[in-house]
Design a protein around this nucleic acid. Structure first.
Length: 423
RNA sequence: GGAGAGUUGUCCGAGUGGUUUAAGGAGCACGCUUGGAAAGCGUGUAUGCUAGUAAUGGUAUCGAGAGUUCGAAUCUCUCACUCUCCGCCA
């Protein structure tokens, strides 16, 4: 959620930003400004009246104490009449606040100045590429055939027990998952992150805090009996640790890493591009989350990008980094870098990480602030990134490292797995 | 799941309708005192919105929400959470 004061004072910049983000309802900005003006006027009025009522109530108390019943009664009458007016003003104020909020949460975040113009993924800016694209042998297979050839991931079993998109990982497949999680967590620990194991179901307040609700309600699994949601990413519980929190300056930045399964309904997607591990309803991910001072957040974003880069280098996977264009960025983000690995048998790039700075967009809703050196409370900036999401990494590892004799794992994973070859 | 007791500021804790402007204590900050420190003394010490250049003021917040009342931390209702006991249980 953008800050009202910012919108009020930077209307032109806001309009330009929204256009870059390919946001259509530009009239909302004027509406918000008008509502805000009305709201403040009403609030001033209501509070002045309330102040008078408070004085009268106190006076009645004094009169009663001194035994002046009649005077007290007279004032009660007067006060009672004013109370109805008060109620009306407060109702109006509440109404205005509600529609102001409803409009405000519809506005996406402002894109950072470096965000390129564009509407589609094709217009994302390729800013970095590294690693050799392997030339595969004759008869090389896509990962969904490798997994069944070596019986390491069982999609049919998942279909039977749960449904599509919930595979079983078996034998070396399960061990590879565990190895990757440990590897990613260990690397994050080395980079100074604090490991947390958050809950994987969250309440409504947390869903609102990080912006999944109300917009993406249909994308989350909902546990109706207890009014809870399965998390789509560890970002939600980990960032919400800081909801309604005022951090001390020396606590900044907070650096947390967590491994969780993630659940996404992915309503509406189907077909070849979601085949195998490309898109699942349940998948594993290690997520890094930082809360930073506003002046440091872009430097922080760079360190997170470097961290993810390091992971892919160690795994020896060819990858590229995209700076997302305005139209392809998420609602919440001010600047996002996507990481894609090349999947040799499918001959396409697969997104494995998304690293973003949300600036104060999430923290404004979360009310996550920090007390700066001058003792002022200011909204912190929140950032997060996948480091990394497992399924597509597994897909790329299986495809890129396959040989006629089996899949030879990269060195860094061999000790984590306890084996070198999947056959 | 059942029964009971709770939830007050940074912390402890008083407070069953009106000088509560939330007592008192601790902590923390600053000042005085001191050779220096401790003790002592003094002052300050929440958050949001809002008015104002500011100083400062208004308003709301005692787990959350609604209600009763001229007036609610205090009374009523709903909900959440914590603790104790019982039941169940990895």
């Amino acid at each position: 959620m953008l800050q009202l004061q910012f919108i009020r004072e930077n209307k032109e910049a806001v309009l330009q930003g929204l256009q870059k983000k390919n946001f259509k309802e530009l009239n909302l900005v004027d509406e918000i400004i008008a509502l805000d003006e009305q709201k403040r006027k009403t609030q001033t009025e209501a509070e002045r009246n309330k102040s008078e009522l408070n004085v009268m109530a106190k006076e009645i108390g004094n009169l009663m104490k001194r035994g002046l019943q009649e005077e007290a009664e007279a004032m009660k009458q007067k006060s009672g009449a004013s109370r109805d007016a008060q109620k009306a003003m407060e109702d109006k104020l509440e109404e205005l606040e509600k529609s102001l909020y409803e409009n405000l949460v519809k506005l996406p975040n402002m894109p950072h100045a470096s965000v390129p113009f564009g509407k589609t993924p094709e217009e994302n800016e390729n800013i970095y590429q590294e690693g050799e694209i392997p030339a595969l042998f004759e008869g090389a297979l896509p990962h969904w055939e490798i997994t069944s050839k070596y019986d390491i991931i069982d999609f049919e079993m998942g279909n039977k027990v749960t449904g599509a998109g919930f595979p079983f990982y078996k034998g070396k497949g399960a061990r590879l998952q565990r190895a990757l999680i440990n590897f990613f967590l260990d690397e994050a620990l080395k980079a100074g992150y604090n490991e947390v194991q958050p809950p994987i179901v969250i309440n409504k307040e947390s869903g609102f805090g990080t912006g999944q609700l109300p917009d993406k309600e249909g994308q989350m699994y909902y546990v109706g009996i207890d009014d809870l949601y399965l998390i789509p990413t560890a970002e939600v519980p980990i960032t919400n640790m800081y909801r309604d929190v005022i951090l001390k300056e020396e606590q900044m930045p907070t650096k947390n890493v967590g491994y969780t399964p993630c659940f996404r309904r992915e309503a509406g997607s189907y077909g070849a591009h979601v085949r195998g591990l490309n898109r699942l309803h349940q998948f594993d991910k290690v997520e890094i989350v930082q809360i930073a001072k506003p002046e440091d957040s872009y430097a922080t974003l760079d360190t997170m990008v470097e961290h993810v880069k390091g992971l892919l280098q160690k795994l020896g996977l060819p990858f590229r980094i995209l700076r997302l264009c305005g139209g392809d960025m998420s609602f919440n983000s001010a600047l996002t870098f996507d990481f894609e690995v090349y999947s040799a048998a499918q001959q396409k790039w697969l997104e494995v990480s998304s690293v973003s700075n949300f600036e104060a967009f999430q923290t404004n809703r979360l009310k996550c602030r920090y007390k700066n050196a001058e003792g002022k409370n200011v909204l912190a900036h929140s950032l997060n990134g996948s480091a990394l999401a497992l399924p597509r990494i597994v897909a790329a590892l299986l495809e890129n490292y396959q040989t006629p004799e089996g899949v030879i794992l990269p060195k860094v994973l061999q000790s984590y797995c306890g084996f070198e070859l999947i056959n």
